[in-house]
Amino acid sequence: MRNLKGKVVVITGGGGGIGSATCDRFAEEGARVVVCDINTEAAQAVADRIKAAGGDALAVSVDLTDFDATGASVAKIEDEVGPIDVLVNNAGWDLFTPFLKSGPDFWSKIIDINLRSVLNITHPVLARMNERGAGRVVSIASDAGRVGSSGESVYAACKAGVIALSKTLAREHARKGITFNCVCPGVTDTGMLDTFMEASGNKDKLRDAFTKAVPMGRMGQPSDLPGAILFFASDDAAFVTGQVISVSGGLTMHG
């Protein structure tokens, strides 16, 4: 990918499956990686692995549902590492719960983690990018937000919101040279998926059904996602904004 070397890249949820794979790929391209995660140990483990391999990484522990704490972390990152060139909104959480079996407390948790957190970090980062007239924001949405997904009503609503937010910000900031794009994973074999399937009450049956539903015959792996994410972050996508790409093995083929 063109022109990622030396770029300051912030990846939220960087200690998880897709997040850590994405951190590793950016480091391989020579980027300065900031691993953001509420799980301090997970973030530090990823940063330590990158540094042991000769890369540049910093672990930052932050609760993205807290607007003030998130803004303070963004200021600290820019003070210690430098201006943020790329923001990857990857942090997320879900639990298999049919809508009629859920309630306001659950809705609030899902919305805070999957939508409000994106607002909380994008706002301060974008303010700085806007002053500089450059930047890339790549948000990890979900095919659930494009086509729906049983047992994920509120999560799907949040991810649809992330897509709509990205398209709107793409319009508002195009003349500033700041791009916004979304990558939508399909069924991806991560810790979050494991938790989701456990909550369904029939994990093995659900895993088999997911696998059979994918035309390519397997569930996605975290390593399947970074290529699309890095493309949107690179100069190869300098004229691409407001777009959504599905990385799902063909599970969804909706334009």
Rank of each mutant, 00 (worst) to 15 (best):
A42G: 10
Q44L: 01
A45I: 00
A45N: 13
A45M: 04
V46S: 06
V46Q: 05
A47G: 08
D48W: 00
R49A: 14
R49S: 14
R49G: 11
K51V: 13
G54D: 02
G54M: 02
G54W: 01
G55A: 03
G55S: 04
A57S: 04
A57P: 01
L58K: 13
L58Y: 02
S61W: 00
S61T: 15
S61D: 03
V62S: 03
L64M: 09
L64A: 06
T65C: 07
T65N: 03
T65W: 03
F67P: 00
D68N: 12
T70S: 08
T70Q: 07
G71W: 07
G71K: 08
A72L: 12
V74M: 07
V74A: 08
A75M: 07
K76N: 09
I77R: 06
E78C: 05
D79H: 12
E80Q: 15
E80W: 01
V81W: 02
G82D: 11
I84T: 03
D85H: 13
D85W: 02
V86I: 14
V86F: 04
V86A: 07
V88N: 07
N90Q: 12
A91S: 13
A91D: 10
G92H: 06
W93D: 12
W93S: 13
W93L: 05
W93V: 06
D94Y: 12
D94K: 09
D94H: 11
L95F: 04
F96A: 13
F96R: 09
F96I: 04
F96E: 09
T97I: 08
P98M: 12
F99W: 10
L100R: 13
L100G: 00
L100D: 14
K101M: 13
K101H: 13
P104D: 14
P104E: 13
D105F: 00
D105Q: 15
D105M: 10
F106K: 14
I110F: 01
I110L: 10
I110A: 02
I111F: 10
D112G: 08
I113V: 15
I113R: 06
N114L: 08
N114D: 15
L119E: 06
L119M: 15
I121F: 10
I121R: 04
I121H: 05
H123T: 15
H123P: 00
P124K: 10
P124A: 09
P124V: 07
P124Y: 08
P124E: 09
P124I: 08
V125E: 11
L126S: 06
L126T: 05
L126E: 11
A127E: 15
A127Y: 00
M129S: 11
M129D: 07
R132D: 06
V137E: 08
V138N: 04
I140K: 01
A141C: 11
S142F: 05
S142I: 07
S142L: 10
S142K: 10
S142H: 07
D143H: 00
D143K: 05
A144M: 05
G145E: 07
G145Y: 04
